[in-house]
Design a protein around this nucleic acid. Structure first.
Lengths: 208, 208
DNA sequence: TGTACATCAGTGAACGCGCGTTCACTGATGTAC
DNA sequence: TGTACATCAGTGAACGCGCGTTCACTGATGTAC
């Protein structure tokens, strides 16, 4: 190798990083290879030294974005009490800052629909990251049997993503703020109430 | 006019109707003018006798689709007891048939993200229909002050749209069925429990 | 240490293609007489 | 009723443009000696 061993990897990572922002902003088909390369300070010709196709970049970019979301959640919750973690995530997700900056936000509301229409390969890559995200949220729901917690995690994530989608359709209007607020209050409802099984278990533990 | 008075309008409506299906299936940018006209049994040249631009067709098509969704809900609930209406809508929304046939389903999960990125004109048209839909769902939540009902309607719609989005990302896998089920059980939670204010009002009414 | 050579990340012109849009034309149909 | 004319929804070739992809080339850098 002529360039230092890390050089190519660094460039590759820079392209993915910049692309992940612009793709979330403009949509999976909303920006071309030439512009994406320009974002990384390069010309379009070099693209295929790094990726087999445009679609390959799309896959890497949204996987990167999903990883950043999960990393963000991890940091956000690392020092919080277990029962407060899910609320921290939901509140930081359902805010105007996230709504107005899709480029640095969750890929599900910004790219989900388009990715679901892509090739099975692309869709499955997204589905895998989705499952990771669900598993992560499940870990943040304490005092519930795993199965019930996972169900609640899915419902909360769906409410979060759906609320963000509606809020972005509404723009940054009064309606949009109303939507965000309604979603925020609703997202955690299921997790807040302690289900019977968990309550019973807790009671048993107290007795011992 | 040479052709019968209704002829042009009929053709126009046919284009919109067919386009609304294909656009929901393929995305707001996923199919071209020529193919959309072919769907209606026409050639692309005649397009601009009916629409100012491709974007104008997109606006008409999703408005048509949103109206069809609301009409469907109206029929679905017309003969049901008031307290069962929301559940009927949520159950018919969160089924595999809807997931697997985006072309005949709700525009929010299929077109929402793309429309949110379009021109203000397009986005506002969508936002208007969204508000109509919220108002309609609010009417289907009985025994609640209007304001609380509207909040619940937004939350339920967000959960429905978000669940469908996640389910489509997951394809038609086991995960996808799990997502649909979790969303179905969660969508109505808020509406099922009677809030204090409504309960108090009911009690007062009983007393009189 | 200095020089000649090899490598390969990155360049930029070029490719075929499909897109949204325009436009001169057609021909079926309604109207005038 | 029949005929000549006017209209205009629809046709299909053509337009400029931007896209994803290819490819011959460049030149900065690492390596061999």
């Amino acid at each position: 190798m002529r360039y230092s061993r890390e050089h190519k990897q660094e460039t590759h990572d820079r392209i993915v990083k910049k692309a992940s922002v612009r793709l979330r902003e403009k949509g999976a088909h909303g920006i071309g290879v030439a512009d994406l390369m320009k974002e990384a300070g390069l010309t379009h010709g070099g693209f295929y030294a790094h990726f087999d196709s445009r679609e390959a970049l799309v896959i890497e970019s949204f996987a990167y974005a999903m990883d950043r979301s999960m990393e963000h959640w991890r940091k956000l919750t690392s020092e919080a009490a277990p029962e407060k973690r899910l609320a921290l995530i939901a509140d930081s997700y359902l805010c105007a800052l996230h709504r107005d900056n899709p480029g640095h936000g969750c890929s599900i509301p910004s790219l989900g629909a388009e990715i679901a229409r892509e090739s099975p390969k692309t869709r499955k890559a997204f589905a895998g990251k989705l499952d990771e995200m669900i598993e992560m949220m499940t870990d943040y729901i304490p005092n519930m049997p795993r199965k019930a917690a996972r169900k609640q995690a899915i419902a909360t994530l769906a409410t979060m993503a759906g609320t963000m989608l509606l809020a972005r359709i509404a723009g940054s209007s009064e309606l949009s703020d109303e939507v965000l607020k309604a979603g925020r209050d609703s997202a955690l409802e299921g997790a807040r109430r302690e289900p019977k099984a968990a309550a019973a278990k807790k009671a048993r533990e107290k007795q011992n």
